[in-house]
Design a protein around this nucleic acid. Structure first.
Length: 609
DNA sequence: TGCTAACGCGCC
DNA sequence: AAAGGGCGCGTTAGCA
């Protein structure tokens, strides 16, 4: 194992931040200035070409996606080597509730992990000094110390992980390369899908503001210089307007005790006053306009390109899910909020495959329910999955009070009461999805109304809750078992051995801590599964280029050809047969199936059978 | 001006 | 008494 660190610089004077953007290298807007390689004692500088000629090596770096994506952009065959991220190893070890104060800069981690290191004082001083990019000497010393620190921290961190954690961390590490390549490749978009809607959205918002009498002064419908209403945008001003000026009764509060104007509060107020319905409509338009139209416009302007570059973060959640950043240094817009794009086709279709390619989505079907059944040892639910019945239909039939077969007959016939938008199938789905993690009855009623459009009274909700627990009696005992186990051990654990240390058992935090104990093994195992899936796809099907992750969904680019589609089907089968046993020592009792869908545009995908 | 907290909301 | 969890982004409000 060797450690590696690169330094980069912008080639555009007015944009020093380009140094942090690997894809700028492809346009000669930034460059790698040096590459340092070594171990805990010694580091040397190497030209990038040497990485392609040398024998296969394991490199440990700090925040690996940055280095690997830059090297990939430079032309290094990064897949030739194995990459490990010392920062991720530290996080595998540190993953706990009270780590708010823990920083993950190399300097901070060096102080925590290698306090005895002989160069530590010099290193800290150097890191704290104002960086002057013109002093090559500064960067050379810094890069060498970075290499040594990274190497030493990795050794210590690896030693502190359990064998199972080391193995899982290495599986996760395999995904550094596909993520780095995806970061450089970027996500191709069709700007017309976020540019053209802007005038229409603005006009609709302006009309609502006009009817409600909350326009900004000087605003005209469709006029130039129109800005969204400050009253509607501000929770404080909106509360003042609807509760004081309009005299509506406030019965929901924010966590800090202020009158709430969130969607749940407004939904119930809308029953009494149509104006509130307009506010809800305005809110939706506002989100659509700012987050999903204006932001991608800003990013494509900043990038001078419709290929956007959301920055992947492999371990920025404590459950092992990935996240993406759409700004660099909280400032420079490089993408849209990839993980928040609304579900329907309207916004999603902005992502469009390049010529000759197709977008493929692999989706772990019913992932969390299956993991709950397995991890929670919920035999009743395992039986449902084994029987091949549709799990939401099983709950729907219970709610309807008829046998499963009859329910399916009526559901397939499209009878409104069973298959309609507030039919019992949809109710069953709602119950299954909301009941897994201890949602309270009152909140559940609001969820039914606000998220699912189901208008139900508290008695009905209580009846559904009882029905769920009657159908799956072991779920409650899983909750208790998960809590007891976490308390006893001090941590909750996933199937791959990822741990989340829990210590906030005091009165105020207890509920949340318990919920984490219940949720972490399931959501975290979902994260493990995704990591296993991506690493398998990348090694067995390198022609399928990893694009992005959406928790239980893996997106790849495939060649638009017969060969490409055959590969997708093959890969789907391989996902159905992921080798959990050799990865985690776990043998699922039920299938963990994946769906595959293909299309030119996201949001316009066809399921492959 | 730049920062953080609070709020609201999109996804899973 | 009641209480899902995990994220990131856009906005206002308030402070230094």
């Amino acid at each position: 194992m060797k450690a590696l660190d690169i330094e980069t610089k912008s080639l555009v004077q007015e944009h020093p931040e380009y140094a942090l953007q690997p894809w700028r290298l492809l346009k000669n807007e930034s460059e790698i200035t040096l590459i340092a390689m070594g171990d805990g004692d010694l580091a040397e500088f190497i030209p990038w070409k040497e990485l392609n000629g040398m024998p296969k090596e394991t490199f440990v770096t700090w925040n690996a996606i940055f280095d690997v994506s830059y090297l990939h952009a430079q032309g290094v065959d990064v897949a030739r080597h194995t990459w490990v991220d010392a920062m991720l190893l530290c996080k595998w070890h540190d993953n706990c509730q009270h780590n708010e104060q823990l920083g993950y800069s190399l300097a901070a981690c060096a102080q925590r992990w290698i306090p005895q290191w002989q160069y530590l004082p010099q290193f800290i001083k150097l890191k704290a000094a104002e960086a002057d990019p013109s002093h090559d000497k500064y960067w050379q010393v810094r890069a060498k110390l970075d290499v040594m620190a990274t190497y030493l921290i990795a050794q210590v961190a690896l030693g502190k992980l359990t064998p199972k954690q080391r193995k899982s961390a290495m599986i996760e590490a395999k995904n550094i390369v596909p993520n780095a390549k995806a970061y450089v490749r970027g996500i191709p978009t069709n700007p017309s899908h976020y540019e053209l809607p802007i005038p229409g959205l603005s006009r609709q918002m302006a009309e609502i503001e006009c009817r409600l009498g909350v326009s900004n002064t000087g605003n005209h419908i469709g006029g130039k210089g129109w800005e969204p209403s400050k009253i509607l945008r501000s929770p404080k001003q909106l509360a003042e307007t609807i509760y004081n000026k309009w005299g509506l009764h406030c019965n929901q509060r924010t966590p800090k005790g202020e009158p709430s104007t969130d969607k749940a509060a407004l939904t119930y107020l809308a029953d009494k006053d149509d104006k509130v319905l307009e506010i809800l409509a305005w809110r939706e338009l506002n989100t659509r306009l700012t987050k999903f139209c204006q932001s991608p416009v800003k990013a494509s302007k900043y990038l001078s390109d419709s290929v956007l570059h959301p920055e992947p973060k492999i371990f920025s959640t404590y459950t092992g899910r990935y996240t993406y950043a759409s700004k660099i240094k909280s400032k420079f817009p490089i993408a849209m909020a990839l993980h928040q794009i609304p579900r329907g086709p309207d916004v999603r279709r902005m992502v469009e495959a390049p010529e000759g390619k197709l977008l493929v989505e692999f989706d772990a079907s019913g992932q969390e329910a299956r993991l709950l059944a397995e991890i929670g040892d919920v035999h009743s639910m395992l039986d449902v999955f084994r029987s091949g019945k549709k799990i939401h239909a099983v709950m729907g039939a219970s709610i309807a009070g008829i046998p499963y077969d009859e329910f399916m007959r009526r559901y397939k016939a499209g009878e409104e009461a069973y298959a309609g938008p507030s039919g019992t199938y949809y109710c069953g789905k709602f119950v299954n999805l909301s009941m897994q993690y201890r949602v309270g009855a009152a909140k559940q009623r609001v969820m039914a109304r606000v998220q699912y459009g189901l208008r139900k009274d508290q008695t009905t909700i209580e009846r559904w809750r009882a029905l769920y627990h009657h159908t799956y009696p072991e779920v409650k005992s899983y909750w208790q078992r998960a809590i007891n186990l976490a308390r006893e051990r001090g941590y909750a654990e996933t199937l791959a051995g990822r741990r989340y240390y829990l210590d906030k058992w005091g009165k105020d935090d207890r509920w949340g801590t318990e919920s984490s104990a219940i949720n972490f093994p399931i959501q975290g195992s979902g994260g493990d599964m995704k990591n296993l899936a991506i690493s398998m796809l990348n090694s067995k099907y390198p022609e399928l280029e990893f694009a992005w992750d959406l928790h239980d969904g893996v997106f790849v680019w495939a060649e638009k050809s017969k060969f490409g589609m055959e590969l997708v089907l093959e890969a789907r089968d391989a996902l159905d047969n992921l080798d959990y046993e050799s990865a985690w020592g776990w043998k699922p009792r039920i299938k963990m199936p994946w769906d595959a869908a293909v299309g030119v545009r996201w949001g316009d995908m066809k399921e492959l059978r």
